[in-house]
Amino acid sequence: MIELARVTKRFGALTAVDDLSFTVRPGRVTGFLGPNGAGKTTTMRIILGLDAPTTGTALVAGRRYRHFARPLRQVGSLLDASAVQGARTARDHLLSLAVSNGIGRARVTEVLALTGLDPVAGKRVRDFSLGMKQRLGIAAAMLGDPPVLIFDEPVNALDADGVRWIRLLMRQLAANGHTVFISSHLMSEMAQTADHLIVIGRGRLLADAPTAQFTGPAAGGDVLVRSPRAGDLTELLRARGAAVAVTGDGGLSVTGTDAAAIADLAAARGIPVHELTRRAPSLEQVYLNLTGASTEYRALGPEDRTPAPEGRALAPGRETEDGR
């Protein structure tokens, strides 16, 4: 369990994290999404006690990270896979971390095997590819078999096999009751891994909801309709309060009503319908809508800035969409 309560971090005039509150719960993979520069890494550093928040508190298992006597047994983290010293072998790197937290040598061998690094354990890290360094970082995070795991952009630079491996590992860890918190700037990636998403932009919370809710009815979407009498159908639909837009290839994008109602309406008036497709919003679109709102704040002065909507609402993205 990770709990942030009203965390703000300022670097001079820049507010990297702005009054951020959320809870990351065990037993599921929580994705931490935001564009580059949104404050994800700073937030993770604050959780790990590396950066001190200007105000607010970040707790892991109810305690500040800095108060852990042996933190690697509580929280495993990987912020930057290339943050290793090339002159050291993979085994020595892991051994140094193991002894620092009273973890036995046997566990070093275990995590090397777990991450598939045992054949290169005695090689110096400077000869590792970024993908191998990523595995080494994950091995280090797993050393203390911690109940909480924090990964910053874990699949960056990994090949397809590596990505699948990490995804599987995260899902397994969550299924075993671990708290898994992973950041990414790619919605598509998170959609396949995370059960729950926390989205931030410019350091503010934009959304905190189950992944399913980002694709569910509340997230928007439309119905695509094709008809030889598109004009007549459009008038009827608009009269019923639905919004209709003409797509590039002559189809109608209908929102504000559902497919069944459109079909019934067309049948009642004898209007032929050639296609009727319910389209879920793409996660990318939802995400862009959400973070687009945060980039819009950028154009405003700090005084004009409207407070970021709190909590579960997906509304901000839709409002922006409607406003366009």
Binding site: R45, L48, G49, L50, Y65, R66, H67, F68, P71, L72, V75, S77, L79, D80, S82, A83, V84, Q85, G86, L97, S100, N101, A140
Partner: peptide, 18 residues
């Protein structure tokens, strides 16, 4: 300085926050 240059210092302080 070598730990600051490589970024290892953050791993060090994550392992030993004191």
């Amino acid at each position: 300085t070598s730990e600051y240059a490589s970024g290892l210092i953050r791993t060090t302080f994550a392992a030993v926050p004191h």
